[in-house]
Simulated scan of single mutants.
Amino acid sequence: MAAAHQEDHLWTERSLGQQLFDDQQSTTKYQRLKARAEARKIVSSETCHVPMFASFIQFQLMTAARRSETLKLKWNQVDLDRQTAFLPETKNGRPRTLPLRADLVALLRELPQTGEYVFPIPVDYLRKAWLRMCEASGIETLGSERLRIHDLRHEAISRVAEAGSQTPGGFSLLDLQAFSGHRDPRMLLRYTHLTPTGLATRLDAAFSECGLKYGKAVIYRGRTRLTEKAELPMSELMSAPITIAIEGNSNQKVVDLRAYRKAAA
């Protein structure tokens, strides 16, 4: 984010310089350089700063939108008061509405709304800026270990899956699907490795005395069983990677119970 702040300095300087040049109604190279120098002086004094790339990165991390969806987003599709952004066209062919968190709305309010697009960043400029930010941060830009813009989407879904596993009631698979925009829910199974700890916590709460008191579990023929009030869908219970440790004479063996579930089925 520190590198993004520096990149925003360059973006603000470039945009302000172009605006000053246009206001002069001149076409000379000298006037263009003079406008750029004046813009550089204004930006360096911190009196003008547009958090374009900082907002872009946070937008990706908080909405899980695809890069193309974000760059095509227009101001007339954003409702800051209702905290929503409507995407009429997505990769899977279905429109969807993005929920905007309050801190993200605060960032968007700092962006200029003079143009049509929320993020008027050319794709090639974004690609070069991303490389500069990664290099300035000491992040890999080549090979399999490189950080791609699309990885922000994966991180966003991972964060929601993790937060849902640690929140009372949590998020269902349908909630996660609505957030990510995946048409096939099977694509979300890659994120189930994030949820076991939170799932265990929610199971403990459901089977506790408090859970019994509030109807999250019931005693039926001597066994404690979950109810719908536990808000633990079967899809989540079946997809979570549950492991057991088998103690031997010299070591322990960890077994993934999903293999046994599949074999039993």
Rank of each mutant, 00 (worst) to 15 (best):
F179R: 00
K91Q: 08
R101H: 14
Q77F: 00
Q6M: 11
Q6A: 12
A106Q: 06
A217K: 01
S165N: 12
L71P: 03
T195M: 13
Q24T: 00
S235M: 15
K216C: 09
A39V: 01
R96V: 00
Q31M: 05
K253Y: 13
L237N: 09
H182F: 07
S172D: 04
K128Q: 13
K262T: 14
H5W: 14
D204L: 06
I57P: 00
R183K: 09
E140L: 05
L226A: 06
L104S: 01
S68E: 12
L189F: 14
E209I: 10
I246V: 14
G138P: 00
Q252P: 10
P88S: 10
A37R: 02
M238W: 15
S180Q: 01
E236I: 11
F207M: 07
L174C: 09
V118G: 02
K128T: 03
K41E: 10
I149C: 05
Q6R: 12
T28Y: 07
R96L: 00
E69G: 01
L100H: 02
V105Q: 03
K229D: 06
A35N: 01
S180R: 01
S15L: 03
G248F: 09
R186P: 08
A206S: 04
A161P: 05
A102K: 14
S44Q: 12
T195F: 06
R82G: 06
L237K: 06
E89V: 12
R146M: 04
E69R: 03
Y260S: 11
A206T: 02
M52F: 08
A265V: 15
E140K: 09
A240C: 15
E69D: 11
F59L: 07
R159P: 02
L189V: 10
K72R: 12
Q83T: 05
V218L: 11
T90Q: 01
T12S: 13
G169P: 11
F59W: 03
D175S: 10
Y260P: 02
Q166A: 15
I244D: 06
